[in-house]
Amino acid sequence: MSRAFKFGQIATTLFGITLVAFFLIRLVPGDPVTLLIGERGASPEAIAELKARIGLDRPLVEQYGLFVWNALKGDLGVSILSGRSVGAEFLERLAATAELGLTALMLATLVGVPLGIFAALHRGRLFDRLSMGLAVSFYSMPIFWWGLMAIVIFSVKLAWLPVSGRIGVEHDVILKSGLLLVDSWLMPGSLAESWAAFKSVIHHLLLPASVLATVPLAVIARMTRSSLLEVLGEDYVRTARAKGLSRFRVVALHALRNALIPVVTVIGLMLGTILTGAILTETIFSWPGLGRWLVSAVLSRDYPVIQGGILMVAVVVLTTSLLVEIFYYFISPRSRGRG
């Protein structure tokens, strides 16, 4: 694939997304003004005036054209509800979701990969069945259920971890980078206070990140297991074994290296799953991220936030998958040949 082709592909995808993001939400019945007014009702003139104020009186095609034209100029418009710039709101939310999502992905990898390796090496035995059974339950139980169970057990019954939020309210950390793990060190005050705030951030991250990690963890564990099993059946592994290498060396040095290549791809592609999982996780744990932002925008039909938000999320996902591809290019010699 040439680079020009790749970028053409990305541009086409983004264009398609603007179409979907713009028109799909307008196909859903209801409009922001009716929802704002609620049971109160208002005279048709008052409603028309409010609609005109936010530009909903213009023809759809014109509204769409304006959206795309402004987006090309880097302006995503302003939220109907808050009156604030969609781009600015997006960036604030992105940091919160990134902090949660990356922690979850890290947890999922750190637990999922070893779990998959163990399962593959104990294939068919009790541990394999148990861990893969667990993976299926992680995958199939609704995140909402996991979240509430985790809160009831770890926060309320055992009193180990806080119920929700990003940081204890007693820590007066001002958002700079948006990542509280970083900002807790930038706050005014002593190092001890920063340390206390940092610990509070970790406390608050643990439950939601674990809950969000359930689905990717299951996928990563199963992927690692099946990929390792496949590689262990290959000729070069048999050769290595025949040379008399220890089982550890065979697995760790020869098999794993190749088995993990598809796992890395899966981890990269898990980003989309993380974002969808974040919608529910963020709602349960009152996490101020992208998921909650988009859901509340859909519920109130805040069109500029929905279309701009979805476009930006798409940009993030596409950028990451591009990065994964580049990374893949370096770790897997085979993919280079196809260039």
Binding site: I151, V152, S155, V156, V163, S164, G165, T283, S286
Partner: peptide, 20 residues
């Protein structure tokens, strides 16, 4: 005075019980 924004009603109850 701090408003801790918590949209889920049962989570609000848990936070109260926990002293948050």
């Amino acid at each position: 005075l701090i408003f801790a924004i918590t949209t889920d009603p049962s989570v609000r109850t848990q936070k109260l019980k926990r002293g948050e």
